[in-house]
């Protein structure tokens, strides 16, 4: 089930009548998304980029780009930010991160911006383990396990990561609000098109470790980490938040979670992937 997007004519972002009920900020303190109410619906403002009017049921959205935005920015914002938030309105559990499909199952990586989630996903894909998602990891109970639903078939990488990992893959047209490259899935950068059972969650450290370190977290720590990385469109809707909390607790109980750190050098990625493959195998991960 996907949400429907309508693209409306560009319009300057006029001041809104009421203050946002919630704001997500970039690491430099600038607002990234301001959440406003529009009756029972929502207006998500990406400053200087676009406004998205999201229906109360989270099933449809209308994008009004700012007048100077003429590239693929609206579509990108929709797929990577708005659509996960719309799905959260419908009770789905979606987390900021990346996920890849390995023979042992899906591995999800969560972490703050800049921790290397996309680079790690690209390195897995280059090694033949298709990526499932970059930016938004959709995890849902399926029978007796948790599965990751494939996201958009594209990754975003800084130029140094692209040049080091997939130099032959040309980036898509740039987005003017970021210098990260968008890379569409390709034979050398495969994307998984089917859900995969979630085998393990890795919380990426800041890269201070001189070697690969993997430490099991408690289920409580896993729950709090997942909640900290969740997409939730309406933090004031108690029924919705309670449902999301219950689903996330179910995931934290079902899927082993680990703190992962490693030196951020490209030459260490190949052995790191081998280490994680082994770790996530039946011998490495005990529930």
């Amino acid at each position: 089930m996907t949400g429907a997007l309508t693209l409306a004519p560009a319009r300057a972002q006029a001041p809104l009548a009421s203050p946002p009920y919630h704001t997500i900020f970039f690491s430099d303190g600038a607002p990234a998304i301001a959440f406003h109410r529009a009756g029972e619906a929502y207006l998500l403002r990406f400053p200087d980029l676009a406004d998205f009017e999201v229906s109360a049921d989270g099933l449809s959205a209308t994008c009004r780009p700012a007048p100077h935005v003429r590239d693929a920015t609206p579509e990108h914002l929709y797929v990577n930010q708005v659509l996960p938030l719309m799905r959260s309105r419908r009770g789905e559990a979606i987390y900021h991160g990346a996920a890849v499909a390995t023979p042992a199952g899906a591995l999800a990586c969560l972490g703050a911006a800049g921790r290397g989630k996309s680079t790690l996903a690209a390195a897995f894909a280059r090694a033949g383990h298709a990526f499932l998602a970059d930016d938004a990891v959709w995890a849902r109970p399926a029978g007796g396990h948790i599965e990751v639903v494939p996201g958009a078939p594209a990754l975003r990488l800084w130029e140094d990561s692209r040049a080091a990992l997939v130099p032959r893959i040309a980036p898509a047209a740039p987005l003017h609000f970021t210098s990260k490259h968008r890379l569409a899935a390709a034979p050398r950068l495969p994307h998984a098109d089917r859900p995969a059972p979630l085998r393990a969650i890795y919380l990426l450290g800041e890269g201070a470790s001189a070697s690969v370190t993997i430490a099991r977290t408690s289920a409580r720590e896993a729950l709090l980490a997942l909640l900290a990385h969740a997409f939730v469109i309406d933090i004031a809707d108690r029924d919705l938040v309670a449902r999301h909390f219950a689903t996330t607790a179910r995931i934290a109980n079902a899927v082993p979670c680990f703190q992962l750190d490693y030196p951020r050098r490209y030459e260490t990625l190949e052995p790191l992937i081998a280490t994680l493959e082994e770790h996530a195998s039946a011998e490495g991960v005990q529930r």
């Binding site: 709090l224 108690r238 938040v241 909390f245």
Partner: peptide, 24 residues
């Protein structure tokens, strides 16, 4: 009435829906 909780592993996490605060 504004509080929910879930067992996670051996522990328990409480969410206060009024404040958004978590307790273990």
């Amino acid at each position: 009435p504004h509080v929910v909780g879930r067992a996670v592993g051996e522990e328990f996490v409480i969410l206060d829906l009024a404040s958004g605060a978590y307790f273990g």
